[in-house]
Design a protein around this nucleic acid. Structure first.
Lengths: 197, 197
DNA sequence: TGCAAATACATGCAAGCTGTATGTAAGGTG
DNA sequence: CACCTTACATACAGCTTGCATGTATTTGCA
């Protein structure tokens, strides 16, 4: 059995592997130090590749951050979908989705990446677009159903405001706020809106 | 009348003047380009001073940003205080304060500085501490008065969540959201919370 | 199977930025 | 009027980013 003979990997495999290593290393450093304080030499050292690889896979440092953030948002979205897709009734789906959101947000670094860094690095619009999937649609639908008198403009606004409250709750929890309290208060808030008119 | 003879200014005057010029130039560039994309050489060129002056007045670039952000937060706080201090009853003070907040947030650049850049540059905690004065206390007091059964922990949480909603409303308005709609929906939201229980 | 082309990555380099150290001029003080 | 302090200016070292160019591996194809 020949040793040291590097297995002939396909380009796709090589590519996927280095890309994954870059994403992982970048995520850790972005979480720990923030985007601005993280240098690309540090990222590639941690990933075990060179800066050439980084700039081959990503347009620039910001593009790498975008990829990290998108992956993170997708993980959240997937978790919420997995928890809610079995729930049929919209009322219950909202509360389930809410709980799933808070669960997902407990994963270390998510809040830092998506709520603190992303708005500044990618801009507000891109940042909200990232979290667009995070239960926002379920929320909008629930509100729309419960408040048929409201215009879609009003529903959109309300969705944004409640979504912001969810985000802030996650943020505060990360910074030591009490999980149970914030979940309670958040549910109370949504509940009152739903039965309001 | 002697011309060109530079008036003998006091140190305090010199100091205040350069500092003001730096703050003004920095504000413009931070708003236009964001913190990371703004270079100190550009700031001092715009201010008509040298980098030496900048680093004499401020510890580093972040410290300059902090000063700009603090000035901005104070302007908002002053505006809200001016509008609300004549209003006696807490209920009315809240609605007046809310309107004053939205008015204040229309000043160009404020949202960019305080809601987009500040959290990433100064950290979430410092950023919320900055806006701590922006009607947050009136809000907390109003909630506390209207919801006597709630624990102070719950009041704090609710205050944070509604405060986040206010912030998001300002953000969305800046990005083209309809001012009237957001004000309406925000008032509805607060109103429902107040009469809830 | 062997060779050319494409892909994936490595290395070297130029430009720019930050923060500090050191130099100078103006203002305050006894 | 001399000394000290404050306010600023200039020079420099160390990094950082992104690109340009070089090399190795893989793939397509005759």
């Amino acid at each position: 059995m020949t040793v040291g003979k590097p297995a002939r990997r396909s380009q796709a495999d090589r590519r996927a592997e280095t890309r994954a290593k870059l994403l992982e290393a970048a995520r850790e450093l972005f979480v720990e130090l923030g985007f601005a304080e993280t240098a690309t030499p540090d990222i590639v050292r941690k990933a075990g590749v060179t800066r050439g690889a980084l700039y081959h896979h990503f347009k620039d440092k910001t593009d790498l951050f975008r990829a990290v953030a998108e992956e993170e948002a997708k993980a959240i979205s997937d978790h919420i979908d997995k928890e809610t897709h079995i729930v049929a009734e919209p009322e219950q789906a909202m509360v389930t989705g809410s709980n799933a959101f808070f669960e997902a947000m407990l994963v270390p670094g998510r809040v830092r990446l998506l709520m603190e860094e992303a708005p500044a690095v990618l801009g507000h619009s891109a940042a909200v677009a990232l979290t667009r999937a995070n239960g926002t649609e379920e929320l909008r639908e629930g509100l729309s159903r419960a408040l048929p008198e409201h215009s879609s403009k009003q529903i959109d606004a309300l969705t944004n405001l409640l979504s912001a409250a969810f985000d802030r709750a996650a943020l505060e929890i990360t910074y030591g706020g009490d999980l149970v309290t914030y979940k309670e208060v958040m549910h109370q808030l949504v509940g009152e809106v739903l039965k309001g008119k």
